[in-house]
Each structure stands twice: as structure tokens, then as C-alpha cells.
Design a protein around this nucleic acid. Structure first.
Length: 585
DNA sequence: ATAGGGTTAG
């Protein structure tokens, strides 16, 4: 006997059959036939449930077929359909389609309809459609519905329209945790890590208790900024408040530790996780790779396989680049072949780049170039040629470099980075006439190279420095300290490396720039502001130049400090006068 | 029945 519940009637047998079938097409077809035969074919609740399951089973045509058989579909049925289709990324477009059908049929949308259709617009990054739907929200009087408002914040955030995200957010009277999370995540996803953290602080002041989704965004922001102390605070908060370390939150933590250069803490978190999927393994593999532990990255890749998980294309990028940075050429070649042969995936541009980069770094320029010519004979992607060009510069192969650069400049004439590398190559070859030509070309096209900057976190605040920067309040003390430091370095044997990077600069800029590259300023500031024994962590937006790399080795020895620099590509751990990259970048 | 989250070379 079933126990009687006051609010819940027991399901009909047909409904129970549907529940048992679940999102499995062949079973749904059977139950559907049974429903029709037994005369329940017009039951709205049964058809709605069937429709949801058909959609969850992945068959849009079957879903549509069921829908079309319903005479005069009402708001509930339309909404149900729109919600089902909004749940799968593949069907987002159908969600918009059914929404427009709904309006055409003169059926009124509800706040439930809007949350779903807005989510679909967000998943599609369809800002224009989203704006139109926002208009409908206002017309139908749901402008102050907290659920709809939170969805709108997420929509604008995902579409990169932070102004409008903030406008909606500011109008919300009772901000739910989801509204806060959507806004914080919007800032973070668009590269405004500082703003994300600032809003998180305001959220705390307001007395709203953060949850795991909040911390996922905050940890991403920490990762972005290299904000180790704030990241550690978050970790302690998570543990102290007994938040469940689910796979997403765990991966965020791993990523935070990795991007702050602390691989062992990342591994601790990894080992403590109950559930680990490919994304978590990939984060850890990439962490070993970027921090210079190539063989550990490869080892972890194989361990993942032994655990029965399959790598995806991002996993291969992580493990191949780990091989590239560690000089593990044979292993890298084998892994590349396995993408197709063992895993039946198709290597993409990103994998070709890794392979060319790996061969190029190892000095196998001919093999790399032949690979491009044979595997991608027609229009190799600029990224692949860029990797090839970098290798030519690294191994001072001027002829091949000029040849590759010619292709590259034809393909991307507006990218200043290509001109910079080419002029570097000519400078290394001593062809100053060519350097001049390339530079004039850049000037004529009004192309400027990217401005370098470095950041450092002190007392949970992030400070930014750029080359020759004098905007900081303690500029004088920093420069004075840095001058003394560089003097000590020279006494210890440091010789400034006037490498090719210098040749792009105007004559009078050189000496100034050499001493005051942004990472040196940030390190000087860090040494002044933090106590002995604390590692200095720097994040740089470009690659480090050879001179800084050499200088920082001396600085680490003289000041007896561990200095960790994350550049555009990887980490450098400086300790006792040497670097973890072993000068193989 | 409602909204928000993690991995990627150069």
C-alpha cells in the first residue's frame, strides 16, 4: 500500500512508465505508443513529461514531433519545452525558436520562460537577441523578478557587456547569492579580476554568505592575478566552513595554486578530491608542465589513463606543451601520433602548434618545417608559423626565419608581434639595415608592440608595474633600492645582457629600460614590502627577456629569496642563483 | 519548475 501524502497524489501508471524509461529514446517510443493506445494521448502532463525526456535524450526531431501533436499548446507546455532545450548547449538555438513560436501563437511567457530563454541567449552569446528578450521582460512586467534579473546579469556578463550587467545588478533590490555570483563571474570571465575581487569584498560587507560558486569565480580571479595569499585565505575558508570540495571547486583550487606557482599545494588538493574528471586531471597535468616538471606531467597523463579516463583535446595541449618545455621530444612525438591512432581524435591547430614548438625548441628546425609542409601544405594557421618563427629566432636561423616571417606578414600584416620577432632576428644577424626597414614598416602601419607589465600581491592587494613606471607612491625608494641591488649583482658577476630585445628600443631608452623592466621593479617592491623567507611571486603579461632572467638569478642569490615569475607561457622558480627552467624556455 | 561555477599552445 502506498502511504497517502496530503499534497502528492500517486503517479498514474503511464507516468511511472515514463519515469522508468528516463531519457532513453527506444524506451520512450514504447511508452509513447502505450500512452496513445491506452487513450491517454491527449494528457498534457504526460506529453509534457515525454517531451522533456525526449529532449534530454538528445532527439530534437522527436521532441518537435511530440510538441506539434499537441493542440493549442499553453504557456506551461511552451515553457517546459523552452526550458528543456535551454538545458543542453546543443539545443539553445531551438530554445529561441520555440520562444518565438510561443510569441507568434500569442501565448504569454512567464518568469520561468524568461529565465530559460535568457540562459539560452547567454549560452549562444547572442547579445542582440538577449536585448530583445530583455525588452519583452519589461513589457510583460517581470523587470523586478529576482530570478529573471539574475539571469539577465549572467547574460550580459557572458556577452561581455559589463555596463548593462551592472545596470541590471544595481537595480536588484534583494540581491540573491546567484545575482552576486553572476556579477562576480561576469567580471572575472571578462578579465576584470580586480573588479571581481572588489565586488566579492562588497558582498561580504553586505553580509551575504559566499558559496562554492562564489569561490570558483574568486579563485579564478586569484589565479589570474597570482594572488596567492587571498587564494590561501579562500582555501582556509572552504575547509573551515565545511564547504564540499566538489570537482569544480577542487579544480578551481588546483588551478589557483598552479597559477601561483605552488605545485605541491595543487597536488595536495588533487589527491584529496573524491571525484576527479578529465578537467581536474588536465589542470594538474598542465600545472606540472608550465612549472617545468615535464616528466611528471607525462607520468600523470599515463596515470589518468590507468584510471580509465580519456584525454580530450585540451589534455593533449597540456601534455604536449609540457614535453615541449622539457625537451621530451620522443615522448611528445609518440603522444602526438596517439591522438589519432589511439584516441581517434583529430589533431587541431593547437596540437600542430605544440608539436612545431617542441621540435623547434629542441633545435630540430628542419623536422618542424617539414612537418608544416607535409601535414599542413595549404595555408598553415598563423599560430603554427609563429611557433616556427620563434624557433628560428631561438636557434638563430636567419634564412629560414626570414622566409617564415614573409608568409606570416602576408597572412597577418597588422600583428605587431611578428614585426618584433623579425626585427629581432635581423638584429641577431647584425643586419641593422633590415632592422630599420622592419621598424619603419611598423611605424608606417601605426603598429605598436604590446606594453609589458608585472604584478605582485602584497597584503592581499595586487600592485602593477610597467617599464620605467614612476606612478607608484614609493617610486623613489623602489628605484633607489633597485639601483643598489643591481650594483650588488654586478659585484657578484652579473653582466647586463644586451640581447636582441634591446634592439627594438630607441638608443636613449636602452639603459633605462634594461634596469627598469617591470619585473625588476615589482621584485624590488616585493623585497621592500615582505619579510625574509617569504617567496616573491610575480606575474608578467609578456615573456621575460634574457637580461631579466639572468639578473633575477643573481637577485635570488644575493637576497636569499625564492622568486617565482609567471610569464606569458610558463613559470620560472629562482632559488640560490639558478632557475627551474634550466635556461631551456 | 525558475538564476550562478573548473582545464588550453603561441
Amino acid at each position: 500500500m502506498e502511504t497517502k501524502q496530503p499534497h502528492k497524489l500517486p503517479h498514474s501508471p503511464a507516468y511511472n512508465f515514463l519515469l522508468q524509461a528516463g531519457p532513453r529514446l527506444y524506451l520512450l517510443h514504447q511508452v509513447h505508443a502505450h500512452i496513445v493506445v491506452s487513450g491517454y494521448g491527449r494528457s498534457r502532463s504526460l506529453l509534457t513529461k515525454l517531451l522533456n525526456l525526449a529532449c534530454a535524450a538528445g532527439s530534437i526531431s522527436y521532441t518537435r514531433q511530440i510538441f506539434l501533436a499537441v493542440p493549442n499548446p499553453d504557456s506551461f507546455l511552451f515553457t517546459s519545452l523552452i526550458k528543456s532545450t535551454s538545458k543542453s548547449h546543443n539545443f539553445s538555438i531551438y530554445s529561441l525558436y520555440f520562444y518565438s513560436r510561443m510569441l507568434l501563437c500569442n501565448v504569454s511567457p512567464s518568469n520561468y520562460t524568461f529565465t530559460s530563454v535568457i540562459k539560452s541567449c547567454a549560452d549562444l552569446s547572442a547579445l542582440k537577441h538577449g536585448r530583445v528578450v530583455h525588452g519583452h521582460v519589461l513589457v510583460h512586467g517581470f523587470g523586478l523578478d529576482v530570478y529573471v534579473q539574475a539571469a539577465l546579469v549572467a547574460l550580459y556578463g557572458k556577452c561581455g557587456d559589463l555596463i548593462n550587467a551592472r545596470k541590471v545588478f544595481d537595480k536588484i533590490r534583494e540581491r540573491s547569492i546567484v545575482a552576486w555570483n553572476s556579477m562576480i563571474s561576469g567580471y572575472e570571465q571578462n578579465g576584470f579580476a580586480k573588479e571581481a575581487i572588489g565586488l566579492f569584498d562588497r558582498m561580504k560587507e553586505t553580509g551575504v554568505e559566499p558559496d562554492s560558486a562564489t569561490f570558483v569565480s574568486v579563485l579564478s580571479a586569484c589565479a589570474h592575478l597570482g594572488a596567492f595569499n587571498l587564494g590561501c585565505w579562500v582555501h582556509k575558508y572552504i575547509v573551515g566552513n565545511g564547504l564540499d570540495l566538489n570537482v569544480v571547486l577542487g579544480t578551481s583550487l588546483i588551478n589557483m595554486y598552479i597559477r601561483c606557482g605552488n605545485v605541491s599545494k595543487a597536488r595536495e588538493v588533487f589527491d584529496s578530491m573524491k571525484e576527479r574528471n578529465v578537467v581536474a586531471w588536465t589542470a594538474m597535468i598542465s600545472g606540472y608542465g608550465t612549472n617545468g616538471y615535464g616528466s611528471q606531467a607525462v607520468e600523470l597523463f599515463h596515470e589518468m589513463r590507468r584510471n580509465g579516463l580519456f584525454p580530450n583535446s585540451i589534455t593533449f595541449v597540456a601534455v604536449l606543451s609540457a614535453c615541449a618545455h622539457a625537451g621530451l621530444v620522443n615522448e611528445g612525438r609518440r603522444l602526438f601520433v596517439s591522438i589519432r591512432e589511439e584516441y581517434h581524435l583529430v589533431p587541431g591547430v593547437e596540437h600542430h602548434v605544440c608539436l612545431v614548438d617542441m621540435l623547434g625548441r629542441a633545435g630540430l628546425l628542419d623536422e618542424a618545417y617539414n612537418f608544416i609542409k607535409e601535414e599542413i601544405p595549404e595555408n598553415p594557421a598563423p599560430a603554427i608559423l609563429t611557433a616556427m618563427l620563434g624557433a628560428c629566432k631561438m636557434h638563430k636561423n636567419f634564412d629560414l626565419g626570414a622566409q617564415v616571417a614573409e608568409h606570416l606578414l602576408a597572412a597577418e600584416p597588422e600583428n605587431p608581434a611578428h614585426y618584433v620577432i623579425l626585427s629581432n632576428i635581423y638584429a641577431l644577424a647584425g643586419r641593422m639595415d633590415q632592422v630599420e626597414k622592419v621598424r619603419n614598416n611598423m611605424i608606417r602601419k601605426c603598429l605598436k608592440k604590446q606594453v609589458g607589465y608585472s604584478t605582485i600581491e602584497v597584503d592581499q592587494k595586487t600592485y602593477l608595474f610597467s617599464m620605467g613606471d614612476k606612478s607608484h607612491s614609493e617610486t623613489n625608494a623602489i628605484y633607489h633600492f633597485l639601483d643598489e641591488l643591481m650594483w650588488k649583482c654586478r659585484e657578484a658577476g652579473y653582466v647586463p645582457v644586451s640581447d636582441s630585445v634591446m634592439h627594438e628600443l630607441e638608443e636613449e631608452e636602452r639603459e633605462h629600460a634594461l634596469r627598469y623592466h617591470s619585473e625588476k621593479l615589482a621584485i624590488a617592491f616585493g623585497l621592500l614590502k615582505t619579510s625574509h623567507g617569504t617567496p616573491i611571486r610575480i606575474v608578467k603579461n609578456l615573456r621575460m627577456c634574457e637580461d631579466c632572467h639572468s639578473a633575477i638569478k643573481f637577485i635570488s642569490a644575493i637576497s636569499s629569496r625564492e622568486i617565482i615569475v609567471r610569464d606569458k607561457l610558463r613559470f620560472h622558480h629562482f632559488k640560490f642563483g639558478s632557475c627551474s627552467c634550466l635556461d631551456y624556455w
